[in-house]
């Protein structure tokens, strides 16, 4: 949606006009973040990335500690789990499908979904994508390799496809009276596969990797995944946001656009297109913090939506 907005955006700000998003998508910037490493050191230039990987792998480790080591801290998988025998957590995306498919789940499932829902509503829907979802490891790897190999072009579906898909997932659930999407949902399938065994699910995960690498840059998470779309809708009013509060220091290196999984969200905040505060309020932003890392001028930081200062 926002993609349409900035397609013909005029260079109304003082910085020279650059087709930054296009350049980023075409992978012009092969090694973003070099400047930042020089300016702030490797560790600080990878701070949020490392934290994010720690979160993703840590959550996975909690689930795997049971079957691998017999430490049953968390049982189940991301679809529904039980922590320490008391805390139920359920994916609200699944409960939504259940409800339209005509099944009213038990209290603890609703409670679990409520807790998860409240968390993402409050802190940011797509935190799930950047900090929890295991598919992010795969699509990040594909994006990284794409940049390194200098692969250009490809055919990417519109970013709004995922919202349509989300709608149809619910329609199909209602029409078939079953959680039809779960037959193919790569997100739950990947996580479940890691914990309970894969079967042929490797094929689907490999398919996403190759799709992102060869056909559509950031194609899955950024354009198709209905689960990401669901969480994006949750995050519309959430508190944690990235701000380009030192945007006056921006030197147009385009590194942030190159690493951002949703590059279209940066422009309004960084260049003041259609807004004058420096907050990235677009719900598609995953709050991954990678733009904070790679910026040699420390333009970005993670803050709250109430902080509009520059």
């Amino acid at each position: 949606m926002s993609a349409h907005v900035n397609a013909g955006a005029a260079p109304e700000c003082q910085v020279p006009p650059t087709s930054v998003r296009g350049a980023a998508l075409r992978g012009v910037v092969a090694r973003p973040g070099r400047e930042a490493v020089e300016a702030k050191g490797w560790l600080r230039a990878h701070k949020w990335l490392l934290l994010r990987r720690a979160s993703q792998l840590g959550i996975l480790a909690l689930f795997l500690a049971g079957p691998w080591l017999g430490w049953w801290i968390v049982k189940g998988n991301l679809s529904s789990s039980l922590t320490l025998g008391v805390l139920p957590l359920t994916d609200p995306f699944l409960v939504a499908q259940q409800l339209v498919a005509g099944h009213w789940p038990y209290q603890e499932s609703l409670l679990g979904a409520g807790i998860v829902l409240a968390f993402y509503l409050l802190f940011g829907g797509r935190l799930f994508c950047a900090w929890v979802c295991p598919v992010n490891l795969v699509t990040d790897a594909a994006a990284w390799l794409r940049r390194r190999l200098g692969l250009k072009g490809g055919k990417t579906p519109a970013g709004s496809t995922r919202y349509w898909l989300l709608g149809f997932v619910l329609v199909i659930a209602a029409a078939t009276g079953s959680l039809a999407w779960e037959w193919v949902n790569p997100v739950s399938m990947f996580h479940r596969g890691l914990i309970f065994g894969f079967g042929l699910a490797w094929g689907i995960v490999g398919g996403i990797f190759l799709y992102d690498l060869l056909i559509a840059p950031r194609g899955w998470c950024g354009h198709l995944c209905p689960q990401g779309a669901f969480y994006a809708l949750l995050g519309r009013a959430s508190v944690v946001k990235v701000a380009a509060d030192k945007r006056s220091a921006c030197n147009d290196c385009m590194d942030c656009f190159a690493v951002c999984p949703e590059p279209q969200v940066i422009r309004p905040a960084l260049k003041g297109v259609g807004q004058d505060h420096p907050l990235i309020l677009d719900a598609d932003c995953t709050t991954c913090g990678r733009c904070v890392d790679v910026c040699g001028k420390d333009v970005f930081r993670i803050t709250t939506r109430f902080n509009r200062s520059e």
Binding site: S80, R192, F196
Partner: peptide, 10 residues
């Protein structure tokens, strides 16, 4: 069952 089970493995 196919409308209810979220495939959590609990």
């Amino acid at each position: 069952f196919l409308a209810a089970c979220v495939r959590c493995g609990l």
